[in-house]
Structures are given as C-alpha cells and as structure tokens.
C-alpha cells in the first residue's frame, strides 16, 4: 500500500509452500499484495504489509495458509481484554 507502513515483524502469516497448488486465490483476495505466484507456487513477497485480515487463509482451498486473523483495532482489543476480565466496558459499538 503506497504511503503507509505499519510495524515491522508484526504478523502471524505463514504459508506452507509444499501444500500450495498454485491456484492464485491468495493473490486475488489480498488487498496488500503480500503474495506472488511463480512456477505454480505462491510465495510471500511483502510479509510486513500483511494486516492479518485472514482472507487468504479462508480462501485457500488446500489450507496452505495460516494467520491469526482479527481486526487491528486498539479499542476492540481493550474491549476484548476488559471482557475477558469481566470488567465493565465503555461505549463504542465498533469492534465490540
């Protein structure tokens, strides 16, 4: 994505290349051009661009991709943390 970069080494994305059948779905669904396809195998070319949306893993027909997907949202994470500790949550309907 032009003009924007988030933290380095902050993704759980993994691709098991031996399992890949080269269908290209991951390239089709990734909005950050993380993957490339060469010799009927996908590979990761821009790992740090991954935002862990999980579209690639969900759309991979052979489960060659894994990612701990979720929303990169601070208030969502705070709400999640409060919920786990059964504490009252503040306002905000987003990511609740």
């Amino acid at each position: 994505m032009k003009g924007f970069r988030y933290l380095k080494d902050a993704t759980t994305l993994e691709l098991r290349e031996p399992a890949c059948i080269g269908c290209g779905r991951c390239l089709e669904v990734c909005p950050h051009q993380v993957f490339t396809l060469a010799n009927t195998k996908a590979s990761i070319v821009d790992r740090d661009a991954c935002m862990e949306c999980g579209a690639c893993a969900l759309n991979c027909p052979v489960n060659a991709i894994s990612v701990d997907s979720g929303v990169g949202c601070a208030s969502g994470l705070i709400n999640e943390w409060l919920r786990e500790r059964k504490l009252p949550r503040g306002g905000g309907a987003c990511c609740s």
Binding site: Y6, G70, V71, G72, A74
Partner: peptide
C-alpha cells in the same frame, strides 16, 4: 491516535497488540 488503528486498512492485530 492509537484508537484510530481500528479505522485504517493496514494495521495488523499482532502489530496493534505489540504497540499497545
């Protein structure tokens, strides 16, 4: 500003956790 991470289309969950 940290709360705005949820509105952007490029922040990862792992990254936001790390930052928080």
């Amino acid at each position: 500003a940290l709360n705005f991470t949820g509105c952007t289309p490029y922040t990862s969950r792992t990254g936001v956790k790390k930052e928080m």
